[in-house]
Write a protein that binds this DNA or RNA. Structure first.
Ligand SMILES: NC(=O)c1ccc[n+]([C@@H]2O[C@H](COP(=O)([O-])OP(=O)(O)OC[C@H]3O[C@@H](n4cnc5c(N)ncnc54)[C@H](O)[C@@H]3O)[C@@H](O)[C@H]2O)c1
Ligand SMILES: NC(=O)c1ccc[n+]([C@@H]2O[C@H](COP(=O)([O-])OP(=O)(O)OC[C@H]3O[C@@H](n4cnc5c(N)ncnc54)[C@H](O)[C@@H]3O)[C@@H](O)[C@H]2O)c1
Lengths: 232, 232
DNA sequence: ACTAATTAGTGAATATTTTCACAATTCAAA
DNA sequence: TTTGAATTGTGAAAATATTCACTAATTAGT
């Protein structure tokens, strides 16, 4: 029982929303806001207050009746629940544009992911500097995962190479994969795979734009932080 | 009625899965496979065959009873349904590591998204080449959206600037936004916003790894393309 | 202290999504 | 042509997820 002792089988959709609460709570903390209620969180994020309360009930964060949730407590509880406080070691395979961008991305480190290696099969890329790291050859990958206790592998290679890179990471003992390639990766059930799905997201957006246009949506909109639909 | 005339109110989860069917069907087409059944698709993607059939019923693609779906027909129907055949004009705001990676990413173009501009507020970045494009100043953004009929804006600026960039894109007439920043963007209901959520995805992965370890998952796994759990 | 207002927490009610299960259909092969 | 195996498409059932609505608690103000 690291944190709550009852985090078993939480639906993925809830975990996904928890990350939204976290980032929003962090913004509020940055603004010096001390308390936030379930209805405020819900309105800001387009959810009902009941959903927010049910979701936060999974996390060990006690709201206070007439105030809501204390922002710093909420941040800490979510950070802890999501494992940010413990931290992960991650490596990136594929030192292309996206792989380099991720390796250099400070937000990841700030959310508990220490990128401790970048690997590439292309000899011309090996030796290149990426921030504080040097691109290493694939031959060193297995040993690194073992020696540096790497938890997570980021797959940033072309689709054609993605499954074989995944296989290599898996047999080397990786514990989870972020797949940035387009294709579906198959992995054993003890190695969770999460897809980046950036291109899929764009396709979803295209579809949303089209159906929005078909409906003839319009709205009087005041710029900036305005409530969603009901109420304000 | 652009394509089917009945694409109204399809759940986002279905659209999301349709993109998976598309990418997998494209792989199959590349391999020269001619037919695919709902059970094969489902097994490969970790879904039940009934879900696949129900999903594909939303798209105008007729399966054939004893064969399944014809791969090329399936690809075309999904491409058409998702608007790839019509195509979109997109711009990227923020010529940082991620913005440049996206602008250079061929898969996007191949999926109907023509990146027709990259913008940045930093004078030192303006004028830089990104592939075939030149980074332009923010002052040209509004006119570009109008003149080049830009549909989609990609927000690739730091979180602190994301909402104000979104506001600028919205008042300039953008039709949809891909938000790569961490924060939640508020927009009018006629401008759909889809989040990239790369950092959130990593957090979800961390959580999955932890709960997987807590469950003590193990599995005898044969590398490569192996069935999921039931059957093979 | 009392009162009015606010809000977390939660069981019950809805709504949505997924899965089951089977009739109808098609194909291949005998 | 007939038979048998395979597979779609789809109502109905089951499982999940969300929202409602109410209780109990807490605070601020008087
Ligand atoms: N660039 C983007 O914005 C973007 C967006 C969404 C998805 N993706 C996906 O992310 C992946 C990487 O994209 P990118 O733009 O960085 O591509 P890239 O071509 O710039 O980089 C790919 C890198 O992988 C390396 N590589 C190839 N095969 C390898 C192997 N077997 N082992 C190790 N390294 C190998 C190459 O040498 C290269 O450095 C691709 O699958 C792409 O579809 C990219
Ligand atoms: N790099 C990654 O892998 C990654 C992953 C996930 C999310 N993100 C997010 O994507 C966004 C961009 O990331 P990045 O790594 O490219 O950052 P970056 O710092 O490399 O680039 C940001 C760019 O935005 C420009 N910019 C800043 N304010 C602007 C404004 N008001 N108008 C126009 N341009 C402006 C800057 O000049 C800079 O060129 C960030 O919000 C980041 O959190 C990045």
């Amino acid at each position: 029982m690291t944190t709550s002792g009852k985090d078993n089988s939480i639906p993925g959709a809830v975990v996904s929303r928890l990350t939204k609460y976290l980032t929003h709570a962090q913004v509020l903390r940055g603004e010096g806001v001390q308390w936030v209620s379930s209805s405020e969180l819900g309105e800001e994020l387009g959810l009902t207050s009941a959903t927010v309360r049910k979701d936060l009930a999974h996390v060990s964060v006690g709201g206070i009746t007439n105030r809501g949730y204390e922002v710093t407590v909420l941040c800490d509880a979510l950070l802890s629940f999501l494992g940010v406080d413990v931290g992960w070691n991650a490596i990136v395979v594929g030192a292309g544009n996206l792989g380099k961008a991720l390796a250099l991305h400070g937000e990841l480190f700030r959310h508990g992911f220490a990128i401790c290696g970048v690997f590439d099969s292309d000899g011309r890329k090996v030796g290149m500097r990426v921030g504080g790291l040097t691109v290493r050859p694939m031959s060193e990958l297995a040993a690194t995962i073992h020696d540096e206790r790497v938890d997570i592998g980021v797959i940033a290679v072309p689709a054609a190479a993605a499954q074989s890179v995944a296989d290599l990471l898996i047999i080397s003992g990786i514990r989870g994969l972020l797949n940035l390639s387009l294709i579906h990766i198959v992995a054993p059930s003890n190695v969770p795979v999460v897809d980046g799905r950036l291109v899929a997201r764009m396709l979803e957006l295209g579809h949303a734009v089209r159906t929005s246009a078909a409906r003839g949506d319009t709205s009087d909109y005041r710029l900036g932080r305005v409530g969603r639909s009901e109420d304000a």
